[in-house]
Design a protein around this nucleic acid. Structure first.
Length: 603
RNA sequence: GGGGACGUAGCUCAAUUGGUUAGAGUACCGGACUGUCGAUCCGGUGGUUGCGGGUUCGAGUCCCGUCGUCCUCGCCA
């Protein structure tokens, strides 16, 4: 080793020892006769002192040090003179009086400095990721991520799970997200698909008798990005045989309790609360409700039906819903213009027809441009239903059920943040269960799998498969943390006949099913045990435990919103020879100009 | 594919709403300084205002297009 200690470990117990440290020059303060360097590595910072006793040569050398130079310094650990102790630094009790200095490497003037106070623009951080990753914040997050996966592996190991790797080169499945495809050279005209999840492989592992499987698996989905979504992401994936839904939830409950104990220093009360999908949609308008605050959706359908106000009455008469939320004490926070913004928001983002609102005045009367369309008693009953108090702002959406869900969910989320209705450090865990088996496919009007086509219906709903699939509930469950879907899973179908029935319902004919996952249908006929599992979004979990709202900050090398890597320039053009070997040509009108013959420097 | 925000010195930002020579902090370069830790003090370099058009006597500012980053709807079993 080129060093005897790290930059984070020296303290007054080391005084008098000769040590050698290696690291990066964080800052240098030159006082002519004496010069200080804060030396940084991922363990911390230590102050180096160059003075007359270092010798003219070493002092002169030190004067040439600049930000991010990599140096090796040897000297004695000394207590800092009285009055110069730095309480902000764990190593602030001591300093190293340097006797020998080696510049291991110099550095260009860095475009971003790891210790600078203002965070540089994200494009710059991504382009110079190696500099960004030197920041303490990033190092802290990646270390948190490491500790979390360590705990996960230990936890599942103790429960008898085995870690099995599954292929990255697989075959495309018909449903779900868009696949990333990899052309085969050996089989011209065919392509592999990168896994959206190891779903089928882990089911095969159950059939093979490995009754407790886990993996921290990379998954790929070629869909548009969000603050909490990357095209390449990591799942904590697991599967168990001979279990029911409660067994899976209990295992994850235990894991969450362990993580919370380790990183939040408290006991998590188990079992985690459960809510049905229907209840979540009714109370919060979303299947991943943020339970850190109230402001639940309130149904006003019966009152709206009595109203003269046409917008309300016709919504109910045409089978829609009239629901609202009460933003307690927010009437003063939202001016007419502010409410207009909220209206535009629900119209543009959720296709709501409009937003009705009332401000609750002193004395409890409801004030609004639409108030004249209601008689006084009805207004009073609305106020009562919504538990309105002076200063409250009532926001009401009258529309189709789905629209009221989306719009009010959006409003609740937005107002929750704007009104700071929750503690940013709080962690709230819950389960949402009893998802519908199927949803109506917007494109062809047929049924589509709500979760995935291998999901088992609830035992009491199996008979509904034929008669009313829309009311058939699945043995599916989502883990929800602070309003984020942190993971989801199902009990799988282990009966080949039932599996084929579900495929038929989904409009996947026998031929297609056989071609796409005949191997699973085959395997189900060779003694498939009952099994089920779950996958947790690791990046999201890290984000949540780190108290962040951006998944990119929890990933060492993330992609931009347009799915590029600003550091490497990926994706990029490839050599013409590579394309020839794969039998690929690009049409000129579809990226032909990028399909050039050589890799292009995109910087 | 739709909606929105942003793009000015290496970096973080400003520029009195269209006005004459585009500023500040920091970084960088030079000088001073023996106890600093956001060191301080003095001096200096640094700009195709993302790019391309247009309107105007005059554009960082207005308009159109384009590129990039972010937020969001659709999308994400």
């Amino acid at each position: 080793m080129l060093r005897t200690h790290t930059c984070g470990e020296l303290n007054d117990k080391h005084v008098g020892q000769e040590v050698t440290l290696c690291g990066w020059v964080d800052t240098a303060r030159d006082h002519s006769g004496v010069l200080f360097v804060d030396l940084r590595d991922r363990y911390g910072r230590t102050q180096l002192v160059f003075g007359p006793e270092s010798g003219q040569a070493v002092l002169g050398q030190a004067k040439s040090l600049r930000s991010e130079y990599v140096i090796q310094a040897t000297g004695k650990v000394a207590p800092r003179p009285e009055g110069t102790v730095n309480a902000k630094l764990p190593t602030g009790q001591i300093e190293v009086r340097v006797e020998r200095l080696t510049v291991l490497n110099s550095s260009l003037t860095p475009p971003l400095q790891p210790s600078q106070k203002e965070l540089p623009g994200e494009d710059l951080r991504l382009k110079y990721r190696y500099l960004d990753l030197r920041r303490a914040e990033m190092q802290k997050t990646l270390f948190l991520r490491h500790r979390m996966t360590k705990i996960m592996r230990d936890y599942f190991d103790q429960l008898g799970f085995i870690d099995v790797e599954t292929p990255v080169l697989g075959r495309s499945t018909p449903e779900g997200a868009r696949d990333y495809l990899v052309p085969s050279r050996v089989q011209p005209g065919t392509l592999y698909a990168l896994p959206q999840s190891p779903q089928l492989y882990k089911q095969i592992m159950m059939i093979a008798g490995y009754d407790r499987y886990m993996q921290i698996a990379r998954c790929f989905r070629d869909e548009d990005l969000r603050a909490d979504r990357q095209p390449e992401f990591t799942q904590l994936d697991l599967e168990m045989a001979f279990v029911d839904l409660d067994d899976i939830l209990r295992v994850i409950d235990g894991l969450m309790a362990r993580l919370v104990k380790e990183f939040c220093g408290r006991e998590l009360k188990l079992p985690l609360p459960r809510m049905t999908y229907d209840e979540a949609m009714e109370r919060f308008g979303h299947d991943a409700p943020d339970l850190r605050f109230g402001m639940e959706l309130i149904d006003l359908g019966d009152l709206a039906a009595e109203a003269e106000f046409r917008v309300f009455r016709s919504a109910v008469e045409s089978g829609g819903r009239v629901r609202g939320i009460n933003a307690k004490g927010a009437a003063g926070r939202y001016s007419r213009k502010g409410i207009d913004e909220l209206t535009t928001y629900v119209q543009q983002d959720f296709a709501a027809k409009g937003l009705a609102w009332f401000k609750v005045e002193e004395g409890g009367t409801l004030a609004s441009p639409i108030a004249k369309n209601f008689d006084a008693t009805l207004l009073e009953r609305i106020a009562q239903r919504m538990e309105a108090e002076p200063g409250d702002l009532l926001l009401i959406v009258a529309d189709e059920f789905e629209v009221t869900c989306k719009a009010l969910y959006g409003l609740r989320k937005r107002l929750g943040a704007e009104l700071k209705l929750y503690d940013l450090k709080e962690m709230n865990f819950s389960w949402v269960v009893e998802f519908p088996m199927f949803a109506v496919d917007e494109e062809d009007g047929g049924w589509t799998a709500m979760h995935h086509p291998f999901t088992t219906p609830r035992a009491e709903d199996v008979e509904r498969l034929d008669s009313e699939p829309g009311r058939c509930r699945a043995q599916a469950y989502d883990l929800v943390v602070n309003g984020y879907e942190a993971g989801g899973g199902t009990i799988r179908i282990h009966d080949q006949k039932l599996q084929q029935k579900v495929f038929r319902l989904l409009g996947i004919d026998a031929e297609t099913a056989a071609a796409r996952f005949g191997f699973l249908l085959d395997a189900l006929q060779y003694g498939a045990p009952p099994h089920g599992g779950i996958a947790l979004g690791l990046d999201r979990l890290v984000m949540l435990f780190a108290g962040m709202t951006n998944i990119r900050d929890c990933i060492a090398f993330p992609k931009t919103q347009r799915a590029t890597d600003l550091m490497t320039g990926a994706p990029g053009a490839v050599d013409a020879k590579q394309l020839r070997e794969l039998g690929i040509t690009f049409r000129r009108d579809e990226g032909g100009e990028r399909g050039g013959c050589t890799c292009r420097d995109r910087s």
